[in-house]
Simulated scan of single mutants.
Amino acid sequence: MHPTEQAILPTRVVGLISGTSVDGIDAAFVEITGQELDLKVELISGATYPYPADLREKILAVCAGEAISMAELAEIDDAIAFVFAQAAQNIQIGHQPATLIGSHGQTVYHRPPKHGDGSLGYTLQLGRGALIAHLTGITTVSNFRVADIAIGGHGAPLVPRVDAYLLSHPQEARCIQNIGGIGNVAYIPPRRDNWLEKMRGWDTGPGNSLLDLAVEHLTNGAKKYDESGQWAATGTPCHPLVEQWLAQDYFQLPPPKSTGRELFGVTYLQQCLQDAEVYQLSPADILATLTELTAASIVHSYRTFLPQLPDRVLLCGGGSRNLYLKQRLQSLLPAVPVLTTDEVGVSADFKEAIAFAVLAYWRQLGIPGNLPSATGAPREVLLGEIHPSHD
């Protein structure tokens, strides 16, 4: 038991995150009670606030490796913090105010530690917590990944420990599959017999990242994503291509592992499009094939690295709204129900934002937030830097 034995009053927290798709800031305003096994989270309000178009373009350029000056980096850092602070304030309108903000910020660079050479990974999330605390007058916890990375972990995925306490089941093994720009999984065995030590988690590979980039490319920027997978659903996947792509090193690498747009980004898509030329695929076929890669990489991950297939898969993140992708996952896992976390009482749209609210809450209570079996860190650590409000 962690050093938080006293009864804890309900705490109102805002969780903020913008994922690798860079499509906007997910804000979840929640009331939290309990600690770990008795953790309860009530979603008061959830909303997504799009980035201003010019700021989104700057972020995507930085993610793609465009060179900028330190002065420009500082400006982007401040601009992201400003829109995150606005999101935190807007989500509270009409409600009793929060006393804490947990802000993941915007990842612009992520380099996992290299296997076997003892090096540390590196990660950079913009949108500094000190400025969010200053602008909102609310204590803010930010920079969650660095403590795990500092002791040799990947700093990702960070959500599995929260999933363990919100979504575990006494008899059922579950995979909680987040599909944002990148896909990540938390495997939760039945809640008994050292179940937490038996949990696993890792980044499965591309989620929506290649799909969104392909839609933008195929429509010359007119569309940003394929709503519900409707366009991909009119195409036919090219299975030889999917098999070729699944031979990529990342998919064979054993967990713990993490990835990002640095691998599954513009350059990767260009290679995929080049590979597809020989098959003379239509735009719909290309989207169907990239969707199949996301689905097949998730299932390949389960079959290769899990002790057994789960009894149930629960989807969350933007990709959980892609009905064609969900259908393909179900087809590849015929004996396993594929649902969303909505169906077990946790918002699929805002689960990641909820998780960072919980991680901030745990940080204040002195409860570790990482799961070493998921991040590869040698031990549990407190996650996040606390920036007190001076109001």
Rank of each mutant, 00 (worst) to 15 (best):
G94L: 02
R12C: 06
G121K: 09
V62D: 01
Q271Y: 02
K326Q: 13
K351C: 03
S258H: 10
R303P: 06
Q125F: 14
H169Q: 08
V278P: 06
G205E: 06
G260C: 10
T236G: 08
N322I: 12
A147I: 03
V278E: 07
V381K: 04
W231I: 15
W195Q: 02
I286K: 14
F82S: 07
Y109A: 13
H2E: 09
R321A: 12
A87M: 02
D212I: 10
L135K: 13
V146M: 05
V162T: 06
E277I: 03
A156F: 05
P378G: 06
H169D: 15
A222I: 14
V336K: 04
R192S: 12
W202H: 04
P170M: 11
S347G: 07
E31S: 11
S45Y: 11
A233C: 05
L60K: 12
A27E: 03
D249F: 13
I93S: 02
L309D: 08
Q177A: 00
D275L: 09
I286Y: 10
V215G: 12
V336E: 09
L383T: 07
A74L: 11
A355F: 01
A222M: 08
F82E: 14
L306I: 12
V266K: 15
T107Q: 03
T204S: 10
V185T: 08
V215N: 07
E36G: 02
W245K: 01
T219Q: 02
D78I: 01
M70S: 10
Y302E: 03
H387A: 13
I176P: 00
R145F: 05
I286M: 12
R363S: 11
A232S: 14
H115S: 14
V14F: 13
E36I: 04
N322E: 03
Y225A: 04
Q177W: 06
L290T: 09
R128H: 15
V299E: 14
N322K: 06
L371N: 05
R200T: 04
V242W: 01
R174F: 14
I68D: 00
I93D: 04
T123H: 08
Q125G: 07
D212N: 15
I59N: 01
I8G: 03
T236Y: 06
A247Q: 13
I149S: 01
W362L: 08
T267I: 11
L293N: 04
Q308M: 09
E197S: 14
E343V: 09
D203H: 05
G345I: 13
W362S: 01
L158C: 05
K257T: 10
L269G: 02
R379S: 11
D77C: 06
Y361M: 02
G181I: 06
I182K: 08
C238F: 11
E197W: 07
K198C: 09
L287C: 10
T234K: 11
G319Q: 03
L339P: 00
I101E: 10
N370A: 04
I17W: 08
D163K: 04
